[in-house]
């Protein structure tokens, strides 16, 4: 069989769109009334983003309370830490209870604020930062993640509406850190908090346009532990992802 290029797979786009138009009984015209959101200019979005930021500033204590409440309803163990010291203390307790020997963490700004590595290594735990370099290729990091009993990450955003932690791609943040180990801990700073999904998607759209059409390869929500109810509607936690998740709110 002659090699087929990927481009010739399936139906050519124009032909497929022609079928669709025929089914709709329409000519080739864009929506008569353009969809309002798609006509937003970057300036419009900037203005809206500014309003969101101001709204959050004015309501921060209430939003943090709501985040804690909704996160707990979503299945997180929530801990409000007054400062870095309390956060570290909580992590150490957790590590003791969880009976583990190795921990992986991402490389995010929040770890400059909370000295996780020193606190856990002092307990005799191996702490690996998932950051690729020549000494640590992807495959060996992956093995490390698999062997770890706990994964610690920061949050790019935390949503008060749903109690979700949002992670975006960056160097030093593997999605696997939050999903593969049996325990996941997310460190949330007050400045990460957003009120709702509407806020989140507006900010992401703004950044998409500011970056000249780059969204980043993923945007992930995490809300509570992994769970299933596929056998007799009985809820089981920890099926493919973590069984236990903790949200430490710094403030």
């Amino acid at each position: 069989m002659p090699a087929m290029s990927d481009q010739s797979l399936g139906v050519p786009k124009d032909e497929f769109l022609r079928f669709v138009r025929e089914a709709l009984g329409r000519e080739d015209v864009p929506p008569a009334q353009p969809y309002p959101r798609l006509t937003d200019s970057t300036t419009d979005l900037e203005q809206q983003a500014l309003e969101i930021r101001q709204k959050i500033q004015q309501n921060l204590p209430a939003l943090l309370d709501k985040l804690a409440d909704m996160a707990q309803k979503g299945g997180w163990n929530v801990f409000r830490a007054a400062g870095a010291e309390e956060a570290v203390g909580y992590l150490q307790d957790l590590a003791r209870k969880s009976d583990l020997s190795a921990v992986v963490r991402s490389a995010q700004g929040v770890f400059d604020q909370v000295p996780v590595d020193a606190a856990l290594t002092s307990m005799g735990l191996k702490v690996t930062t998932v950051l690729r370099d020549e000494a640590n290729p992807r495959e060996s990091l992956r093995e490390e993640i698999r062997r770890s009993g706990m994964g610690i990450t920061g949050a790019d955003f935390a949503l008060a509406e749903t109690g979700s932690v949002i992670v975006l791609p960056r160097k030093g943040l593997s999605r696997l850190v939050s999903v593969v180990p049996p325990v996941h801990v997310a460190l949330v700073r007050p400045e990460d908090v957003l009120e709702s999904m509407d806020d989140l998607f507006l900010l992401r759209r703004l950044e998409y346009h500011q970056q000249g059409g780059e969204m980043g390869s993923y945007l992930n929500f995490i809300t509570g532990p992994s769970r299933t109810a596929d056998i007799e509607m009985t809820i089981v936690e920890g099926v493919h992802g973590p069984k236990e998740v903790h949200m430490i709110i710094l403030g």
Partner: peptide
Amino acid sequence: RITSYVSM
């Protein structure tokens, strides 16, 4: 309220 994971 929302699923454990939303992956985009």
